[in-house]
């Protein structure tokens, strides 16, 4: 079976010369849920922006569902990689929730009546079916996060990429989002500092530090090694142990 994501020897330096990635290898099979962990500045976001072709690899390749990330099929790559950004206010820019969810599929050539159906299904999948006509401004933080997820689900992506999905959420919204994510049955790459959330949602974790993958294995095993965590500026919150 073709893996959902294949990254081989990916290296990248920003135009100012700062090298962010030094040869990253990563393979995610269909249906896997993987947490991407690492301290601030480790290169996590840089890696994410390579997956949908916002950054172009300096060296190495990225393939999504077997298709290489390259200019001729950038549009198809962006449909296949659904990025949910950290701040929903950046992601939700249309006047209403329904319009925002329709934005992606409409760009990818979906037309009515299929478009309305996609919007309805995506909002239904995140429990926001009632709110299509509201302004994103009038939603709670948790609702906005779920709508942001719906805007990506409507594009029917091969892989969901979530950037800090649990940040700024109250405990109930955090749990509700976890339930929605667990119910989706999709390939997922979740960038997070929230280690208990990684443990709850992702059986496998990849730790990246200083631009290279330093560990790749079962989340529970990685989090059970305090010395390893400390070496990469990671630690479980007070009172937690695995």
């Amino acid at each position: 079976m073709t893996p959902s994501l294949e990254v081989e020897g990916l290296a990248f330096a920003y135009p100012d010369g700062h090298q962010a990635l030094f040869g990253v290898d990563l393979r995610i099979e269909q249906g896997e849920r993987v947490a991407l962990l690492g301290p601030n500045g480790a290169g996590k976001t840089t890696l994410v922006l390579h997956l949908n072709g916002v950054h172009r690899a300096g060296a190495g390749t990225v393939r999504v569902g077997g298709l290489e990330v390259a200019k001729p099929h950038l549009q198809e790559i962006r449909r296949r990689v659904g990025v949910v950004f950290q701040d929903p206010d950046d992601q939700l820019f249309m006047p209403t929730v329904g319009d925002d969810v329709a934005f992606g599929p409409a760009n990818f050539g979906v037309t009515e009546p299929e478009l309305s159906l996609r919007v309805k299904q995506a909002l239904g999948a995140v429990g926001m079916g009632e709110h299509a006509d509201r302004s994103p401004m009038h939603l709670s933080g948790g609702q906005r996060r779920r709508v942001a997820l719906a805007t990506v689900l409507a594009c029917d992506p091969e892989i969901l990429v979530l950037d800090e999905p649990s940040s700024n959420l109250d405990p109930v919204a955090r749990r509700e989002l976890a339930e929605v994510l667990l119910g989706l049955d999709r390939t997922m790459l979740m960038v997070t500092h929230d280690l208990p959330y990684a443990l709850q949602l992702c059986p496998r974790s990849v730790v990246i530090d200083e631009g290279v993958v330093v560990a790749d294995g079962p989340t529970r095993d990685l989090l059970a090694d305090p010395a390893f965590l400390a070496a990469h500026r990671l630690e479980l919150p007070f009172g937690f142990s695995v």
Partner: peptide, 21 residues
């Protein structure tokens, strides 16, 4: 800049799609 990035990620190519014509 972040909004623009989020728009690109969902296939924005410079023109808004006409919704529900």
């Amino acid at each position: 800049e972040r909004v623009h990035l989020a728009m690109l990620a969902r296939g924005y190519t410079g023109s808004m799609p006409l919704l529900g014509v």
